[in-house]
Amino acid sequence: MTWVVGGNCFNGFVCVADIQATLEFSNGTPSRHYNCVQKIHKVYDNLCVAFSGDIKSGLIIIEDLQKKLRSSFKESEYFDIDGQSKQLIEYITKLYKKINGRKEPFLEFMFLWNAQEGDNLHYTPYLMTFRSPTFNMSSTKVLEAKDTGFGKRDSKYNAISTLLSGKSNDSSEFKKLKGELENVPRIWTVEKFKNFVFAEASEINLPGVSKTLICFESVIEYKDIFPDWVSDMLKVVFEELGVNYTTKNTANHSVNLVEMDFNEIDKVIKDLQKNSPDKLEVLKFMLQSAVKEYDLECLYELPKITSSYRVDDLEIIHSPHLFTKWKDLRDFLKSNGECISACSAIAA
């Protein structure tokens, strides 16, 4: 079992996953669980790949893809699926069939990357999924979330991914998760997406999904467009113009909201023009000063990929390091007395 959720945020991509492997037996033996698998991987300098489903197939394909990309790209070349989707699908499908023969275990990949589109020098985040057996591509819009694995069938995990996509539903779990939020946020930063998932998902108890979570992220540094002193000044200006900054509590976390009503801002400006023209001139001067500090160079640099984790102190972690290769996981399971030929190791 597993739950993987990815975010196509305005300032980059983020992916969070649990670490549990479930062993299922065909002879009626109860399933067994091990917290020991890394389900998200940095595959290239600008690309992360996560998976749910058959662990053997997922780890072998990701390891092979890492080697293939490193040998295929020249220096300063980066992954992008534009014009290459057919070849990628054919490659995954061929290797999947080589591993499994006539069997077709469930397997879904989540690809997340930042790339320069066309002649644009700035980077844009992308999130796409590929599901067995045909591995047809499914894209996710910017400012939306996508989840995969057995956890997505659970109403609590579903509530998290729904809220992160800026949507809502009438379930009791969603209403509880929403907490004090009157309106569902439409825009998430990578950092807030990660922290929200860490806080909320770690409180869910579902057999087959660990409460310990790992995260891979890549941030486009929009925050560096302006120096810190300018960002602080702009917040003061925006507050004077009617932009509303608040903090609302969700079930187990809090969300900092920035709400902008253009009609309200227009009213404020007209009121300042009539009653406080000197104050309006000061605000204009502050905005003009900010524009002079505007620098887009930070958007032209390849965003780094970093990782982090949240460990549940009450949960048993069965290995001091997470397994990234099938042969290592297989040897570990054998050392724990598991008969690999008699079971399926899944992260579904």
Rank of each mutant, 00 (worst) to 15 (best):
V4L: 13
C9F: 06
F10W: 07
F13W: 11
C15H: 02
I19E: 02
T22I: 02
S26I: 14
T29W: 05
T29N: 14
P30W: 00
S31D: 07
R32Q: 15
H33F: 08
V37S: 01
I40K: 06
Y44W: 08
C48F: 10
C48R: 03
A50R: 00
F51K: 01
F51M: 06
S52I: 10
K56C: 15
L59D: 06
I61A: 06
I62E: 02
D64P: 03
L65G: 05
K67W: 01
S71G: 07
S72Y: 06
S72R: 12
F73L: 13
K74Q: 10
E75Q: 14
E75H: 08
E75L: 15
E77M: 00
E77Y: 00
D80M: 01
D82W: 00
D82A: 03
T93R: 15
L95N: 14
Y96M: 12
I99V: 14
G101S: 12
E104C: 07
E104K: 08
P105D: 08
F111P: 00
L112D: 03
L112S: 14
N114L: 14
Q116R: 09
E117W: 00
G118P: 01
N120C: 05
N120A: 06
L121V: 12
R131K: 15
R131W: 00
S132W: 01
S132Y: 01
P133K: 10
N136G: 15
S139E: 12
T140L: 14
K141C: 09
V142F: 02
D147P: 07
F150T: 01
G151N: 13
D154I: 10
S155G: 04
K156A: 09
Y157I: 13
A159C: 09
S161H: 04
S168P: 00
S168Q: 06
K175W: 00
K178C: 11
L181S: 12
L181E: 10
N183E: 11
N183C: 03
V184M: 07
V184K: 04
R186Y: 05
W188F: 13
F193M: 13
F198Q: 04
E200P: 04
E203W: 00
N205Q: 11
P207Y: 11
G208R: 01
G208N: 05
S210Q: 04
K211S: 07
L213Q: 02
E221N: 09
K223L: 08
V230E: 03
D232M: 13
V237M: 05
E240I: 01
E240F: 05
Y245M: 09
Y245W: 13
T246F: 02
K248Q: 05
N249M: 02
N252D: 05
E259D: 14
M260Y: 03
D261Q: 09
E264L: 13
D266M: 07
D266R: 06
K267M: 08
L272C: 12
L272H: 10
Q273V: 04
P277K: 13
E281A: 15
V282K: 09
L283M: 13
M286P: 06
Q288E: 15
S289H: 02
S289L: 09
V291P: 00
Y294L: 15
E301I: 14
K304R: 12
I305V: 11
V311Q: 03
L314H: 09
I316C: 08
S319F: 04
P320H: 14
P320Y: 14
T324I: 05
W326G: 12
D328F: 04
L329W: 01
D331Q: 14
F332P: 07
L333H: 03
N336R: 13
G337N: 12
G337A: 06
S344I: 10
